[in-house]
């Protein structure tokens, strides 16, 4: 029963350089589809990342607060409710307000192709669509997410 909130609350000062990369997997919005989020959380954990999973029905505030508290390096957001155009940019801008603009934000779910360039412009680093393999996502996170300074 791996659950949220495993450990370190230290705000990144006394970190060892070789520490594990910490990823928050979040479910913003009201939809209850967590199959994808949970599978990706497990795959990333198995690949050696430290995973914090928020659980369902999170507001942008809840996600950004959890990210700050857990001092994460990347945030993966899964959304299948159609509210991505509002919620994802909102989370990115709240991170910037908290001086956490360097946290890599990526997402996935039911997101029409035409919305993806707009989301990327607003600071979502990458959007994965249905049919993506776990290997692709793990490879992306390994490549893109580094421990924050």
């Amino acid at each position: 029963m791996a659950s949220a909130a495993a450990g370190s609350q230290a705000a990144g000062k006394s970190r060892k350089p070789d520490r594990k990369v910490r990823i928050l997997i979040g479910k913003p919005g009201l939809d209850g589809h967590d199959r994808g989020a949970k599978i990706i959380a497990r795959a990333l954990r198995d690949a050696g990342f430290e995973i914090i999973y928020t659980g369902l029905h999170q507001t942008p505030e809840m996600i950004v607060n959890a990210a700050a508290q857990e001092d994460v390096d990347g945030i993966g957001l899964s959304i299948l409710s159609g509210a991505h155009n509002y919620l994802l940019p909102r989370i990115v801008s709240m991170l910037k307000e908290k001086k956490m603009g360097d946290v890599v934000v990526f997402g996935g779910g039911i997101i029409p192709d035409e919305d993806i360039p707009k989301l990327r412009k607003k600071g979502v680093d990458r959007v994965f669509t249905p049919g993506t393999t776990l290997q692709e996502i793990v490879a992306y996170v390994k490549e893109r997410v580094r421990p924050r300074k």
Binding site: G29, L30, D31, H57, G82, A83, N85
Partner: peptide, 22 residues
């Protein structure tokens, strides 16, 4: 839509971006 499924009105802050979507 999701706000109705979760027992929120459309003008609740929880409903932002979700109204009529699903």
């Amino acid at each position: 839509h999701f706000p109705t499924l979760m027992g929120y009105d459309s003008d609740s802050p929880r409903a932002r971006g979700e109204v009529g979507k699903c």
